[in-house]
Simulated assay, not measured.
Amino acid sequence: MEIFKTKDALKAYLKPLKASGKIIALVPTMGALHNGHISLIKLAQENADIIICSIFVNPTQFTDPKDLEKYPRPIEHDLAMLENAGCNGVFMPDVTEMYPSDKTEHWHIDLGRAEFLLEGEFRKGHYQGVTQIVKKLFDAVEPNIAMFGQKDFQQVLMIKNMLTHFNLPIKIFTCPIIREDDGLAMSSRNIHLSASDRTHALVLNKSLQFVLDNYNNYSLTELQEKAKNFYNGIKDVELDYFVIANGDTLEPATSKNEKNQVALVAAKVGTTRLIDNMIIN
């Protein structure tokens, strides 16, 4: 497994591979890897010849500096996981490689109304930062395909909108959410959960599963209200939102006749903010 610190070194490695017709896949991450990330590597291996994983904790997508400071960075653990998974190359640039201090850079693109819904409402500017760094990674790798996890459902939609904005010929693969045995969605943030928080966090999956199991038994309004009731009285759990939305626009679903509906939830558990979702149809 090759490790690259600069865009030039990465491009030099990839150039002959692309010339020989190899299909290149990019798996962008911020590190603190878990089996959900490895599932992205495995999916990439089924659809490409060369797998490049990036590890970069991107400062422009953190709306809270404390969040950036405490983001886990277990790099030796991450590299061991990637090597065991059969990753071909890892791109680990410094911040100055991706954001040269001698250049003034302005980034703002039209991501559509969905940018300001759900996570966009709670984390102003977050998706501008996400699309900014993903565009930089796409420019560095120029992959044929890129892999993202369904857990960040809104993020995937924003990245697809960014691809359309720049007319980039990259195919996006979305990998299903990988869960722990008790149903908790795997996340790099889970490391911050205390033992009691870990137990309380199971309410996210339970409320989503309730909607999936009872979708035909109640109206959309009733389903959302009953799902929200799961959070009543749980110590140290604060619900930010629970919504059944149109998966293409993230606007609240108004009819069960709408295709591509998804239930999305965000809640603060202890001091850790978690998100989760479940595709309904």
Results as ranks from 00 to 15, higher is better:
E2S: 10
L10R: 03
K11H: 13
L14D: 01
L17H: 02
K18E: 04
A19W: 05
I23M: 06
I24D: 01
V27R: 01
T29Y: 02
A32T: 14
H37R: 03
L40V: 06
K42R: 10
K42T: 12
N47F: 06
I50C: 01
I50S: 01
C53H: 01
T60S: 13
L68D: 07
P74I: 11
D78K: 05
D78M: 03
M81G: 01
L82K: 01
E83C: 03
A85N: 01
C87L: 00
D94A: 07
T96L: 05
H106T: 12
H108R: 12
R113H: 15
L117P: 04
E121Q: 10
Q128A: 14
G129V: 04
T131M: 07
V134F: 08
K135C: 06
F138I: 04
D139E: 13
A140V: 05
E142H: 08
M147H: 02
F148K: 02
Q150N: 03
M162E: 08
L163K: 07
T164I: 15
H165T: 15
P176R: 09
N190R: 14
I191S: 15
S196E: 15
H200M: 13
L202P: 11
V211K: 00
D213A: 12
N216D: 15
N216W: 09
S219K: 10
L223Y: 04
Q224M: 12
E225T: 13
A227N: 04
I234L: 11
I234G: 08
K235N: 15
Y241A: 08
Y241W: 11
V243P: 03
D248M: 14
K256S: 14
K256C: 14
N257W: 11
K259V: 15
K259L: 14
N260W: 09
Q261H: 11
A263K: 01
T272Q: 06
I275W: 02
D276C: 07
N277C: 08
M278E: 05
I279D: 00
I280A: 00
